[in-house]
Nucleic acid binder design. Structure first.
Length: 476
RNA sequence: GGUCCCUUCGUCUAUCGGUUAGGACACCAGAUUUUCAAUCUGGGAAGAGGGGUUCGACUCCCCUAGGGACUGCCA
């Protein structure tokens, strides 16, 4: 054990979620800030699974945490610590507190506790156990819990890195349970013991733990341990300012992944929620690490803004590698049961650089690339069918020959080809552009004509035009 | 009810006692245009209210209002 106080040791942070459901986006941001701060300080970032509530903790939830952090790219620097495996250490700490008189056995029944709770609330004070000042019932086998013997006077100041000094009157703090009647530790004890043993120097966590920081401070003092620095992050709220919940669209990290957001986009967006660096909006991990400091985190809660998330994610899609985007997009098409022919991945790889500027999410990228995956002959939409008048059909026929003579099949050449054709016909592109697009895409979203032709390749493009022309002839 | 936290454009934020209060998203208008986007140009938009402190407050203090967290043998 280091004799140095936490302030003098290399920085060690941790994220400590409880595995009782999905991984909340707020947990993700807490992890991000811990990760950024540790990296910024050249320190260590750890993960601890707070599974002391055996009733509610599940294996699936543990996996969700692993998957979520993995997806976000926030790797811990050491294997995760499972809190429940450390119960014996927690128990010893509680017993030592009993030895030093800083804790006591409380024999209150749940019924008695409930009565006291209501009484205390009515009187506007913290609950107190009668056993704080009484010995155990003689020869009793009655179940008991071990409670912390908190000071009744004075105050406890939490020097929060984000909020500044926060003062709590000790008499307002109740004698929290350290060890349950089944001998298992509770959260507040386990956190203190584990953070101490793991050498945590900075406890960066949600705002909802601010008052726990006061209780935990008291436990640190009673145990004779140096306290870590505390930093309590304001929570993330929904767009309406209320606590983030299902009705706001998403809460779980996995849902954001499913909605087609890129992990680097999420990191950037989450970093900007409650923290800023001048006018910088889009920045990479290295920049965030260089700039980030917990002390600069804003003290007010932030609302989730889908528009901005979409914008930022769109920026990252532009920067993203096309082969990677093609893989991700292929997965979406597959999940949507789109028929994938042998050349699907190739087709997507060709199309993506041509359409990705318009996509905010991978889901949208799938929408925008659907046209290249369609199989000939395409089913034409009603709008396109209406555009295929005799005049337009004849014009598309001439255009088909014009394009077939193109030596190079690339955007620049095709743009030029379409333009020269338009001039030779003496009409604007508007006279045949929409029909051509419809014939090439079957009504699905498609980029400008030259890009669409390029994405489709010469063979496919000409084939689709031929299909449409023969189809419409048959129709008449 | 009690304790604690919070309050700058619709939203995220910059400012950290002296600024025409800046940027981004969103929004509106115009440009571009073969669809939808994207892009470019321009525009409107803020210090919750009230008291102090100060030569001077968005910045510091107090009160009020509003929002939030906690008040478990949950974490």
């Amino acid at each position: 054990m280091s004799a140095l106080s936490p302030a003098d040791r290399p920085v060690v942070t941790r994220v400590a979620p409880s595995p009782t459901g999905m991984m909340h986006i707020g947990t993700a941001r807490t992890a991000l800030f811990n990760w950024l701060f540790a990296r910024h300080c050249g320190g260590t970032f750890l993960l601890r699974i707070e599974d002391t509530d055996r009733e509610r903790s599940t294996e699936a939830a543990v996996q969700a945490i692993f998957d979520g952090l993995d997806w976000l790219g926030l790797k811990a620097d050491a294997p995760p610590v499972f809190q429940a495996t450390r119960a014996e250490l927690h128990r010893q700490a509680a017993l030592s507190l009993l030895d030093t008189g800083r804790a006591y056995r409380c024999y209150m029944t749940v019924e008695e506790l409930e009565i006291e709770r209501q009484k205390a609330r009515a009187e506007g004070r913290a609950i107190r156990s009668v056993w704080r000042d009484h010995e155990a019932p003689a020869g009793s086998n009655a179940p008991y819990v071990i409670r912390f013997r908190g000071p009744l006077e004075g105050e406890t100041i939490v020097n929060d890195l984000i909020k500044g000094p926060v003062r709590f009157q000790n008499k307002e703090l109740d004698d929290l349970v350290l060890l349950r009647s089944d001998g298992m530790p509770t959260y507040n004890l386990a956190v203190v013991v584990d953070d101490h043993d793991m050498g945590i120097t900075h406890v960066i966590r949600g705002d909802d733990h601010l008052s726990n920081a006061a209780r935990q401070s008291l436990i640190y003092e009673a145990l004779g341990w140096a306290k870590p620095a505390f930093a309590h992050l304001p929570l993330i709220h929904g767009p309406d300012g209320a606590k983030l919940s299902k009705r706001h669209g998403a809460q779980a990290v996995s849902e954001f992944a499913d909605m087609g957001y890129l992990p680097e986009g999420m990191r950037n967006y989450l970093a900007r929620l409650g923290w800023g660096h001048g006018d910088d909006e889009i920045f990479d991990d290295d920049q965030a690490i260089a700039w980030f400091n917990v002390a600069d985190v804003v003290s007010a809660p932030a609302r989730l803004d889908w528009d901005k998330l979409n914008f930022i994610n769109g920026q990252y899609i532009r920067q993203a590698d096309d082969a990677r985007l093609a893989d991700l997009t292929l997965d979406i098409h597959r999940s949507r049961d789109v028929h994938l022919h042998a050349g699907a991945l190739e087709a997507l790889t060709r199309a993506i650089p041509l359409v990705k500027d318009g996509a905010k999410t991978i889901l949208q990228l799938a929408d925008l690339t659907l046209f290249v995956l369609k199989a000939r002959p395409l089913e034409l939409d009603p709008k396109t069918k209406n555009l295929l008048t005799d005049e337009t059909r004849a014009r598309l026929g001439r255009l088909r020959e014009h394009l077939a003579r193109e030596a190079a099949w690339d955007i620049v050449s095709l743009e030029q080809a379409v333009r020269t054709f338009s001039e030779s016909e003496g009409v604007g592109i508007g006279k045949f552009g929409p029909a051509l697009r419809g014939v090439l895409s079957g009504g699905a979203p498609a980029p400008d004509l030259a890009s669409t032709l390029t994405a489709l390749t010469r063979e496919e493009s000409l084939g689709r035009i031929d299909d449409a022309l023969s189809q419409s002839q048959q129709r008449v």
